[in-house]
Design a protein around this nucleic acid. Structure first.
Lengths: 222, 222
DNA sequence: TCCTTAGAGTATACATACAGTATTCTTGTT
DNA sequence: AACAAGAATACTGTATGTATACTCTAAGGA
């Protein structure tokens, strides 16, 4: 099977390939939360053996995107409503602390990288592209804060936020104030205004919180 | 080899076994930071095949305890001095936020569990046992805060702190104020005094910070 | 003497075979 | 007809073989 098709992958990139593919499919909700992941079919689809597929699943499990059931198939992690409160809580804190640190420590190179992401965000048209660009933008801001622990956690939370956005597209569909919020946040980081950056980061997640609540009221999940 | 010895492990617990063993050896500095991990020898030592060993290494890599070099052997993650500032920064924030939330949300059952950990901490005699008990205690406090994101990150940071303690034992060896600090923190959480819990959590890491600085001055790593 | 390079050796990344468990389908009984 | 027990099936966990990539050593050339 492995040699049947495919441009004879180089040794070592098989796991990354499966990991990236599964990750995208999970975040785009192509794979529904709770749906099982069949190692064999996935391996056959990618013309490789089960070994790298299993390794990728283990990695995704430690990132929280899949849940392994012992002696059963692994499933895509569910989007739990009881998890919503701690999620928004942690997202708010990480946005605030990374924005503060970015305002404090950013270099000119950081600002340039952030502006590239911002430009990419304004060009994004689909909900999915906006979600990806938004993640990259905030990851760049966190990177300017120079604390990999915060960056890692924020990226994980932004991944979960992407699934929420795909579940409730109306929270991001018009998104007119998203850009102006970003612009204001960038201005605060540029001028090293820590208090203002903190305030705007708080407002950013507050916006998400109210939009989600509105959406849940309009489209209750029951 | 697999059936040679060992009480015929049940299916599925092999990976957990290797993971737990490697984790302990890494945190106790039995395996030096930067030292390579030989899958084959480890598998032979535990009377199992390389497959579960590899799975455990992948898990440890995603937890940050080992670093996999592509097409090379995995190595124990190094304790980097340039990482010390973000580490202490994140540790302080996580201690503060988990203590605040614990003071806000703790139940009677939480208090009972925390007190069990505290009792275990006072009974601990060796540096290693104290480090383990300290981790369990703060994990219990974080658990009372009801935010798994904070709990996960704090536990990861406490693991790294354990390696620091083993590298610089003098920071914890006498440790007379550690217990009174814990007692005061527990009192604040019990009486739901959020501001006081925050303040004490901050003092807790400040103590670690100054002790580490003192120790680094006495025993410079060069 | 030092740098480059070729070859042997070793260990990882992947493939595949086997074993065990969970699920499902079938069959018999009430 | 509905339920239970057993068999068949399917997929996971583990073991092991194979090929590739890296390391180390040594030899040759500058």
């Amino acid at each position: 099977m492995p040699g049947d098709e495919g441009p004879r992958r180089r040794r070592g990139e098989g796991v990354d390939l499966v990991h990236a593919l599964l990750r995208e499919e999970i975040l785009d909700l192509v794979r529904a939360p709770g749906s099982p992941i069949d190692e064999i079919h996935l391996a056959q689809r990618l013309f490789m053996s089960r070994t790298p597929v299993r390794a990728a699943i283990v990695r995704l499990a430690s990132e929280g995107l899949v849940t392994v059931l012992p002696n059963r198939s692994a499933i895509v992690s569910t989007v739990d409503l009881v998890n919503l409160r701690p999620f928004l809580e942690a997202l708010t804190l990480m946005h605030r602390v990374t924005a503060r640190l970015a305002a404090e420590r950013r270099t000119e190179a950081d600002l340039a990288a952030i502006r590239v992401c911002q430009a990419r965000f304004t060009r994004a048209r689909s909900v999915r592209d906006r979600a990806i660009a938004d993640r990259e933008l905030h990851a760049a801001i966190a990177g300017a804060g120079r604390n990999p622990y915060y960056t890692t956690l924020l990226c994980r939370l932004l991944d979960e936020e992407r699934r929420l956005w795909c579940l409730h597209p109306s929270t991001v569909d018009p998104h007119p104030e998203g850009m102006s919020q970003h612009e204001a946040l960038l201005a605060a980081i540029t001028s090293r205004d820590i208090a203002q950056a903190d305030h705007l980061a708080q407002a950013h997640t507050l916006h998400l919180r109210t939009a989600l609540a509105q959406d849940l009221r309009r489209h209750p999940p029951f």
